[in-house]
């Protein structure tokens, strides 16, 4: 303790006024995220310079300015928002259906041993099927429009959520459940006051994994024939030889994926403040 008090004092003698101290604190707050940006931004700038200097013609790998120009162009014509909305709404409906079903079945399998023995082997067998294998069947059953796409995304979201919920319930600490028993909690009260809060951290992880798979499957779904959506932009870019459009769509996927994931994190953070975890302190430095 004594050391940490004295060290800054030594520093202050040669360099600092209060203002620089404030700005260094601010710097530290933004340094973390900035560190993450260093690599992609650095690569983009390097590529831009390479193309600009004539080291590459940038036809197959367009420079960032060209990708940005393509995005602006698409945005101006209103095309971009149409595609984004189409993809987002597919992911959203598939995610909601997958999460509801996965949570329901996962909770049933986790809570009742009989249901688990009855249900889980079948679900695990279905999980072993590569989800893309469902595509032909879904198209036959549900047609080539929205329904089959949403169904595919829902299937992708279902399994990680199901597994996450079931596993989380099964691994709830018996000792904590015993506390509930000594206070004579009824079944519903036990679920509400012990099981739900206990599974919440694992549930959030399951939701985020599910969302990631949802984004993966929306592309697969849009590849199988769509007239709008970011996946359509990808295929369109390939067929018409517009790599800038492909990269633009990929970048938008990255942004949307990261943003929605962050929204889940943000929405659930207040519920998980109690956690005493390695990650809670930012992990190892």
């Amino acid at each position: 303790m004594a050391m940490t008090v004295e060290l800054p004092a030594l520093e202050r003698t040669d360099s600092t006024t209060p203002e620089t101290k404030v700005s260094s604190a601010r710097l530290r707050r933004y340094a973390g995220p900035a560190l993450g940006l260093l690599l992609p931004v650095g690569l983009a700038v390097a590529w831009e310079i390479a193309v600009w200097a004539g080291l590459s013609n940038g036809r197959l790998v367009p420079p960032p300015t060209k990708i940005f120009a393509t995005m602006v162009e698409l945005a101006k014509s209103g095309e971009l928002s149409r595609h984004i909305i189409a993809t987002l709404s597919r992911v959203a409906s598939g995610f909601v259906i997958g999460v509801v079903a996965g949570t329901l079945f996962g909770a049933i399998s986790g809570y009742w041993g009989l249901a688990r023995r009855l249900l889980d082997p079948t679900v695990q067998a279905l999980r072993a099927i590569p989800s893309i294998a469902w595509v032909p069947l879904f198209i036959l059953w549900l047609g080539i429009f929205e329904t089959s796409k949403v169904a595919l995304i829902a299937v992708g979201v279902f399994f990680p959520v199901y597994l996450g919920v079931m596993g989380a319930i099964l691994s709830v600490d018996r000792k904590i459940v015993e506390v509930g028993r000594t206070f004579r909690l009824s079944g519903p009260a036990m679920i509400r006051r012990i099981l739900l809060p206990a599974v919440l951290p694992a549930y959030v992880v399951a939701l985020r994994v599910g969302l990631g798979l949802g984004w993966m499957f929306v592309v697969a779904a849009e590849f199988m024939g769509a007239s709008e959506g970011l996946g359509y932009l990808l295929i369109d870019g390939q067929q018409l030889g517009k790599p800038a459009q492909i990269v633009a769509a990929i970048v938008i996927f990255a942004i949307l994926g990261k943003t929605t994931d962050w929204l889940i994190e943000l929405a659930t953070a207040p519920l998980l403040r109690w956690q005493d975890a390695f990650g809670g302190k930012g992990g190892a430095a």
Binding site: K175, I176, E178, V179, R181, T182, F183, R184, I194, P197, A198, L200, W274, Q275, D276
Partner: peptide
């Protein structure tokens, strides 16, 4: 035969609910 309101128990570990 089952936990009763008149009987309380304290375990070796505190067993506090971490979310409360």
């Amino acid at each position: 035969t089952a936990p009763h309101a008149k009987i309380g128990i304290i375990f070796q570990e505190p067993r506090l609910l971490p979310w409360l």
